[in-house]
């Protein structure tokens, strides 16, 4: 059974149809990307999943249950890191656990062993403003992961970083993901990132968004930290072509 499944989901905000027909699914341990042009409604999908919006049409199920009966199936990492500037890094990372009612001490103890893995040991007591962009992003990711939800929702997590840091972070992330196999749904408009990290990629049309392509990425991992394969290059070119021309698939 799919961890997450969306069937013919649509939503209209005001008089604008934002999502027209979205059908997708994610299996346990799978890395799935949603690739689409800016403003296509990628983030709207996340707003549906996190309960900030309600869909008008179609069904969303999480572990076979309708979304409203399994309300906290997702851990969300927003576009910017959204770290609270007044909380130390450790307290930012434990935020999701505290919101769920876990005592601060217990939450801290649970997070402590993961800090090193995320390159944050020694920085627990720092405030976010004292950290580099890459470290802040790792802290935001750790805050997402420790919630131990069935699906991780990552909204362009590396989009705000400079090119060099982004490449470092993607390589680091791939290694972490390979070790842990978090079930992940990534939203991005970066074709290379989608090809490098995903098992499968859904391509969205511009607004109102429909799924116009579903593509498997068969390349062996790890894919980063070495020259991209010819297959990967071909796939990137194919995806760019779809995004730029939307050939054939437009009704």
């Amino acid at each position: 059974m799919s961890v997450l499944s969306m069937q013919q989901v649509g939503i209209t905000l005001g008089d604008r149809s934002v999502l027209d027909d979205i059908s997708l699914h994610i299996e346990q341990g799978e890395f799935v990307s949603i690739l689409g042009p800016s403003g296509a409604g990628k983030s709207t999908i996340f707003r549906l999943l996190t309960g900030a919006l309600r869909h008008d049409r179609g069904t969303i199920t999480c572990d076979g249950l309708p979304l409203d009966q399994s309300p906290h199936g997702f851990a969300f990492m927003p576009q910017r890191d959204a770290l609270m500037p007044w909380r130390r890094i450790l307290d930012n990372v434990t935020l999701g656990l505290e919101v769920r009612g876990m005592p601060r001490k217990v939450a801290r103890a649970q997070v402590q062993p993961l800090l090193a893995e995320f390159g944050l040991s020694g920085f627990e007591r720092h405030y976010p403003a004292q950290l580099s962009g890459g470290m802040r992003q790792r802290a935001a990711l750790l805050r997402t992961i420790v919630q131990a939800r069935p699906v991780q929702l990552l909204d362009e997590p590396f989009g705000a970083l400079d090119a060099l840091t982004r490449t470092q972070m993607q390589t680091w992330f791939e290694a972490r993901w390979q070790a842990a196999r978090w079930t992940t749904l990534l939203v991005t408009h970066d074709v290379r990132e989608a090809v490098a990290l995903s098992d499968r990629i859904y391509v969205l049309s511009p607004r109102p968004a429909r799924v116009i392509a579903e593509i498997q990425v068969p390349d062996a991992r790890p894919r980063l930290g070495r020259p991209a394969s010819a297959d990967a290059h071909a796939l990137e070119a194919h995806l760019l072509d779809i995004l730029l021309n939307r050939t054939g698939d437009q009704s």
């Binding site: 707003r47 996190t50 906290h72 927003p78 576009q79 609270m84 935020l95 919101v99």
Partner: peptide, 14 residues
């Protein structure tokens, strides 16, 4: 208050 921080908290079930 940063809208993204509030959206994050709500996604956590706050």
């Amino acid at each position: 208050t940063d809208e993204e921080i509030q959206a994050l908290l709500r996604s956590m079930g706050a």
